[in-house]
Amino acid sequence: MLSQSPVMSGPFPSFDDRTFSSPLSHFQEWFKCAVAKEVLEPRSMVLATYDQTHLVDSRVLVIKAMDDEGFFIESGKGRTKVEQLKENSHVAMNFYWREQGRQIRLQGKAVEVRSEDFKHVRDYLDAKTRDLAVYKVIPDRMEFYQALEQGGYERMLYTKENNKWLTSWL
Rank of each mutant, 00 (worst) to 15 (best):
F12M: 14
P42R: 03
E69D: 13
V7Y: 04
S25H: 03
Y50I: 13
R43N: 15
P11V: 11
P42W: 06
K64G: 11
T49Q: 03
V7W: 05
V82S: 10
L61I: 13
P23H: 15
S75R: 07
T53P: 02
L55I: 12
F15M: 15
N94P: 06
F27Q: 14
L47N: 10
V82F: 01
G10P: 05
N88F: 05
N94V: 01
S21W: 04
W30I: 13
S89Y: 01
S5A: 14
L55P: 06
F27W: 09
Q84Y: 00
D67Y: 01
S9G: 07
M8K: 10
M8C: 15
C33G: 03
N94E: 00
V46F: 03
Q28V: 05
R79P: 03
M8Q: 14
N94Q: 02
E29D: 11
S75V: 10
R79I: 05
G76P: 02
H54A: 15
M93C: 13
P13R: 03
L55S: 10
T19M: 07
E41C: 08
P11G: 12
L61D: 07
A36F: 03
R79Y: 00
W30C: 15
E29T: 12
K77G: 09
L24F: 04
V62C: 08
K77F: 00
A92Q: 04
A92W: 03
D16N: 07
H26T: 09
V39N: 09
H54Y: 09
P13K: 03
P42F: 01
D67G: 12
F12N: 12
P42I: 12
Q52G: 08
D16P: 02
W30M: 14
Q52N: 07
M45P: 07
L47F: 07
A34D: 03
S9T: 13
S58M: 08
F15A: 15
G70W: 05
G10L: 11
S25E: 13
S5I: 13
L61C: 10
L24N: 09
H90S: 09
K77D: 06
S21C: 09
H54R: 09
E74R: 09
T49P: 04
S75Y: 06
D57V: 10
T49W: 00
A34C: 06
Q28K: 02
K86Q: 02
V91G: 03
D51T: 13
A92R: 01
V91C: 05
D68R: 10
D16E: 07
